[in-house]
Nucleic acid binder design. Sequence first.
DNA 1: TATGAGGTATTACCTAAGGTTAGAGTCAAG
DNA 2: CTTGACTCTAACCTTAGGTAATACCTCATA
Lengths: 247, 247
Amino acid sequence: MKLTVKDLSRIAGVSIKTLHHYHKIGLLIPNEISETGYRYYGLKEINRLQEILFYKELDIPLLDIKNLLGENSNRVITLEKQMILFEKKIWRYQQLIKTITRSIEYTKKGEKMDNTLMFKGFETEEEWKNALEQQNNYLKENYNTEINTTSINISEMNIMAIEAKNFTDRMAEFLRNGVKYNDSSVQHAVNQHLKFLNKNGHPISKEDYVNQTKFFLQDDFHRDMLEQQQIGLTYYLVAVAENLLIN
Amino acid sequence: MKLTVKDLSRIAGVSIKTLHHYHKIGLLIPNEISETGYRYYGLKEINRLQEILFYKELDIPLLDIKNLLGENSNRVITLEKQMILFEKKIWRYQQLIKTITRSIEYTKKGEKMDNTLMFKGFETEEEWKNALEQQNNYLKENYNTEINTTSINISEMNIMAIEAKNFTDRMAEFLRNGVKYNDSSVQHAVNQHLKFLNKNGHPISKEDYVNQTKFFLQDDFHRDMLEQQQIGLTYYLVAVAENLLIN
DNA sequence: TATGAGGTATTACCTAAGGTTAGAGTCAAG
DNA sequence: CTTGACTCTAACCTTAGGTAATACCTCATA
């Protein structure tokens, strides 16, 4: 059994170029290479190609396949890992279908969907509303003014809410990773946050911010909100804010 | 509202390079570009980016998104198309999970899975067995000897069966597409098939092949087999084979 | 044994959606 | 005015091959 590239490509349903490629990266080396450079494959190579294609079907990168075929016995583990990955993908696609269905409904109703919902971080409408409400309260407390929602550009407010959410997420991650409140990267993050607020029509001094975090501490709504996201976050934020004044 | 690349990247959760890229391909052009080349984005751009990311989430290529955002109103159609695509993907992943499950079972049983089954064309074990049997019969008829299966390399037989299946598939497609029996591409295909057989230990002349197709015609098993795959295939093959002798 | 058709090899450039440098210029706060 | 953070462009890199150009090889047939 001495198969040419064409034979093998026909049998296995891959292109000749693919065989060249696999040869080049050392994934599938011909059984024999003639003096004139022709590749000839045998049964062993066919079996190996079978395995390669099997793994490839599972979306495993070729280099990983190469390593996989090198060792042995962890096949089952690899397969099980891959299965979990597929289940996640299925779940994701199911979610996307739901999103599309919703979007189509909105469009058909003639309403324009509030695309802000799509932004990462806000997977549910509820989460987004909470963020908005927080933003709302924040303004109320800092300026002691009733918010006239109609007078504020809704889109602009969404953006502020998104930035706030992103900032809080980052802080929560710092906390989870054990990054100290006075670590430069933490301080940098909060400085950026304040800079953003100042730049976008929400002037706030460092002192204001300290007061705000302290307010969060004693206000049930805000504290619950933050603690629900990450236990200890409220307290962490106070420490971070107070450290701002020291430098 | 005058956002820098960093601001926007933070808000939308994309990298700065992504914004550069979108600018370069004309997908998202900044609201303002300073004399020094700095990009500044406004609300309009944020909304556009939102839409872009929404479509991107749906695995739509950026250039397609660009066109999509250019026109309007076919949004619903696009979304519905995409939904069908997702359903297909879900189905595919479910199949993959089944394949993995099967493979794991084999491995756990200590048996080595006959990977030849994976090759395209044979979706079920039954189909594969049929093909093998056919191959078996073929040998019987051509050599008039009882087959000693152990003496013949099973893998090699698989490969011959696969090639045969591929060939038959191709012929069926020719027939379906109305390609005439004496078309050069049809003749070429059958020549290749015979060449392959001759090269791999199954010497067969053109006359032999004509006789074989005629045998298929009168043999219930083979005729049913072929006709089940594609009505008229048995008769087509005879015509194709007889034409071989003319040239 | 020569010829012609069809197979094969290598080289090089291309894809999508950015990531990752490097080097140089710019902005804003102190 | 300095400094640190930010931004710019340009160039090369990634996956898994596709495509094209050009040259060489094989094998069945005349």
